[in-house]
Computed example of a mutant assay.
Amino acid sequence: MAALEQTFVTENAEIGPTRSINSQPRILSLNITNKSPQLLGWIIRLLCFFWDYTESNFTTFVIPNSSFGLLSALASSVLSEGSRPSTKNLLWRAPLVVLFNWFNVLNFDLANQRSPKSIQEDRLNKPRRPIVAGKVTVDQTRRAMLATIPAAWLFNYALGVWKQGASIQILTWMYNDLEGGDEIIRDLIISIAYGMFNSASLEIALGSGQAGQISRRGIIWTAIISMVILTTMQVQDLKDQAGDRTRGRKTIVVFFGERASRTSIALFVSFWSLVCPIFWSTGPLGYLIVGTPGAWVAWRVTRKQGPAEDCKTWKSWCLWTVALYFMPIAYLLGF
């Protein structure tokens, strides 16, 4: 309990101009003699503590990846070796899919936000993040990881997706500790990670046994989505250029220039908006489902610039990827 008391902090502390990020904010203490009321409050504060790290990635990463698993499970007759799970089972497993994505993203964010370069970047791009905002220290974040990483391994094993979970941890280590996220291979690491998250989400949604085995077509579809991520994920870097240049990160927009990056995003979004419906042999409605948000993203990325507009384009891109995840369902419905 003493270790936990040194790990988790309140949200009230702030970093002033002369305050170090390693100085100690006011600590959350837990008096076990007061039992349930204080314990409940401590748990809520603990969850809020973790939420602060993942808030920016929840709607743009956790929700889309969870959507891939759940929507693909509805088309399990073409994406898995088993039969379609019942609506009851799918609804029961939906929170597990979301929790898997959030828990593993949490470990990524804890590792990512504690590095000196990330702190420097966050002061420019994301000043509300917990370390920069003074809610928690770097050392307390490190201590939290000593608990969350083993817990995630156990959780992934219990869900039957320990292989993807182990791969995600390796990719997290490469991206953060080996600074692969600052190299030109950054998007490659992210696209592989997406493949791990997406395939695991589908397996969790399908359930255990043969029903949870992804078919050959399902593997190909997961790989196509990873290629989509590899070629268009750079859209997220448009809004973060100031911080990326400060830390020397070799994103495509920094390395090749903003004009080349925006043009390639528009071209690849248009390309995949055609290829994915072709892969699933959908009708005109299938092309419309993907093409409409795809055209919107392509227009925005070439016409709207600036951090605020680029943030909106990034969110529009996330909605476009979710539209792609509807393609197997559109195929089954004959759209």
Rank of each mutant, 00 (worst) to 15 (best):
Q140E: 10
Q140V: 02
T141V: 15
R142Y: 10
R142P: 01
R143M: 03
A144R: 06
M145H: 01
M145D: 09
M145T: 10
M145F: 06
M145S: 14
M145W: 08
L146Y: 14
L146K: 14
L146I: 07
L146E: 10
L146V: 11
A147L: 15
A147M: 13
A147F: 15
T148H: 07
I149L: 11
I149M: 08
I149K: 06
A151C: 14
A152K: 00
A152W: 01
A152L: 07
W153R: 08
W153P: 02
W153Q: 13
W153L: 14
L154R: 07
L154H: 08
F155G: 02
F155N: 02
A158L: 12
A158Y: 10
A158D: 09
A158T: 07
L159S: 04
L159I: 04
G160E: 06
G160L: 06
V161R: 01
V161I: 05
K163C: 11
Q164F: 00
G165D: 07
G165E: 03
G165T: 09
G165M: 11
G165F: 06
G165V: 05
G165W: 02
A166P: 04
A166I: 06
A166M: 11
S167M: 15
S167H: 12
S167W: 12
S167Y: 14
I168R: 10
I168M: 13
Q169Y: 13
Q169R: 14
Q169K: 10
I170K: 13
I170Q: 05
I170R: 09
I170E: 04
L171N: 03
L171F: 13
T172Q: 07
T172W: 00
T172M: 03
T172C: 08
T172A: 02
W173T: 14
M174G: 06
M174T: 03
Y175A: 05
Y175Q: 05
Y175H: 01
N176L: 03
D177A: 15
D177L: 11
D177Q: 15
D177I: 13
D177Y: 15
L178S: 08
E179S: 13
G180S: 11
G180Q: 05
G180N: 08
G181L: 05
G181N: 03
G181P: 04
G181F: 02
G181I: 03
D182A: 08
D182F: 13
D182V: 00
D182R: 14
E183F: 04
